[in-house]
Amino acid sequence: MGYYGKQLRSYAKQPNSIRGEIKMINVLYKTIFAPLEVFSRQDKKGRLGASVTIVISTIILGSVIAPVLYFYASKDRYVISLNAESLILRTALSIATWLFVCAVFWLLSKAFKKDLSYKNIAAAWGLTYIPNLLTVVLYTILMVFPEINSGNILAAFIICTLFIMFLVWKAILYFMIMRFVIDTTPREIVIYTIVSAAVFTALIVIEFSVGIQVPML
């Protein structure tokens, strides 16, 4: 039996829960390095699980862990407080934002007669949270260690480049969903983008008003 045969046999021996995790990790890996295999109209096994995992991780990190870390890192320097209600509100609003954006995409797909399930859109859109997660990680590091960004021009340039890179990556993944999941025509993609821009702007304003600094979109 060759190498792949052994791999297959060891995979088959795994319990179902571990197999599910392997599938999810595989989906996450492909989303980063070979997204054409993940972003398609067909329902892929492990895609929704990977999507929910990445969205929840991003939200928990951005809405709960980052403020707690910032509080403990800065309580000796500034007078700040940690409000549990605010953390819960931010978490709930971030989850609602994800579901709402998916609902908007789904309704538009219905309007354009695309025959796409809400689950499929939610799974695909959730995977685009990988750049968000990395942005939140970088933002949290800079919040806890602000001295990284001050005084060193090279460090500031690298940090700026990383933020722009995550933004461009997110935009590319957005257009991949439009092209390969929702399967839009050029006219439809323009309409989608105009509606999305309006919805995203409104959601960013709402999120800012409750203290979410990295938009959870």
Binding site: W169, F175, F180
Partner: peptide, 9 residues
């Protein structure tokens, strides 16, 4: 853009 979005970004 779509084959390797990370590299493109």
């Amino acid at each position: 853009l779509f084959e390797k979005p990370l590299r493109a970004a």
